[in-house]
Nucleic acid binder design. Sequence first.
DNA 1: GCGCAAATAATCGTATACAATTTGACCGCA
DNA 2: TGCGGTCAAATTGTATACGATTATTTGCGC
Lengths: 237, 237
Amino acid sequence: MNSAATALQTTDEPSETGAQQIRDAIRDAIVERRLSPGTKLSESDVGNLFNVSRTLARAALQALSYEGLVSVEKNRGAFVAYPSPDEARQIFAARRLIEPGILREAAARITASEIQHLRQLLLEESRLIGERGQTARRAEIKASGDFHLALAEISGNAIMQRFMEELVARSSLVIALYGQSTISSCGHNEHGDIVSAIEAKKLDHACDLMVHHIAHIEADLDLRERKGQGLKEAFDL
Amino acid sequence: MNSAATALQTTDEPSETGAQQIRDAIRDAIVERRLSPGTKLSESDVGNLFNVSRTLARAALQALSYEGLVSVEKNRGAFVAYPSPDEARQIFAARRLIEPGILREAAARITASEIQHLRQLLLEESRLIGERGQTARRAEIKASGDFHLALAEISGNAIMQRFMEELVARSSLVIALYGQSTISSCGHNEHGDIVSAIEAKKLDHACDLMVHHIAHIEADLDLRERKGQGLKEAFDL
DNA sequence: GCGCAAATAATCGTATACAATTTGACCGCA
DNA sequence: TGCGGTCAAATTGTATACGATTATTTGCGC
């Protein structure tokens, strides 16, 4: 009960409708890379899968399209988003632009117990890195993003928090598509360094670390057009 | 044909579905303050108004709720959002956090013709300020936001552009609720100063101007809880 | 055997229908 | 008159149905 149950919506109502649950379930599947970019998400299939009508399935897919996680093409259907290299660059540019500001806000109002919570997240993260298996990999992916989301939550700005949720989720898609090294979180413990800098009240340094951290993630990408449709390249190599 | 038709979606498909048109129409009505915060938007009414079924009306309202412009309460309906003072503060905090970064990005890649375009927007804006009448007021409200949106568009980051669209739209709601002086755009020509600073390549100064500009808008607000429900205060004063 | 057109199947876009929930009113009673 | 309960009207939540569009396959002529 650590997947969707943990998604404690900060300001939303507990459960607006069934479509929300479906949306969250699909989102988690996308973020944890159980659904690959480009996968078709037919309304009927989704509906059958969750034992609801097409109406709700459609609503969930629409919601995900607003978050940029699925792309709906008119009269053709919904697909797990397949971010272009340019979109990928924009996502990381947005993170470089936003996250330092969030970090400053968060550092200004962070409490001791919140720092404790952050450190606990880091511990969990490194534990997962040491483990083997697909489920550990997926949990690690989520944990890596959760650090950034926790920072956004601490900042106290629900709007920025939502923006970050979108950016982190889309980053996961980008890394799934263009990531080179097996794991995104670079070997070095960059998250931990950021927390230490925050704790030491070295804000400028913490921001620097954050910007570099994001740059490192992006540097691990191979941003070349290689869509699934281009099956020529599948043989040209 | 200057209202919804002008909403040239930068990256979206030209017309995914009819729900999009309804969404845009309602959004424009909200942003231009033809719809007051708290107004009930019944699915049937919206559907009848646009001569479509409840299905499309509902989809449009859902979309607007994702943008924070309407709030849907379970089993109760949709209402034009009524941002709380705290939400208002978060909106402006987000703008202070985001807009300097957008400005820097935009300034780095701005072209001469784009500067020209910005100046034209400013001209239009001041023309509207001089005019009388409700329609001029509404156009002025939109024009004031369009400057910030134009900057976001120039920045070349579609994601940040979308974030800004949401923030500007929600700002309009906040100003409608809590604004004191009749018009939001302070008497001084702050937008023009920003353009000048960009043109002069004085980036730091431009960012300062932008932050102060946002602060000025926020300073014009009277952020006090005065919800329709809180009728106690209606007598306590 | 191959390419192209027409029929077929699958899927989406929208409308309508029914069930569930809320809201407000009406009515009886203290 | 004021209060509580029951019922009806309105509105939303969800499902189903039908028309439109796109993809696929079949069949024919070459």
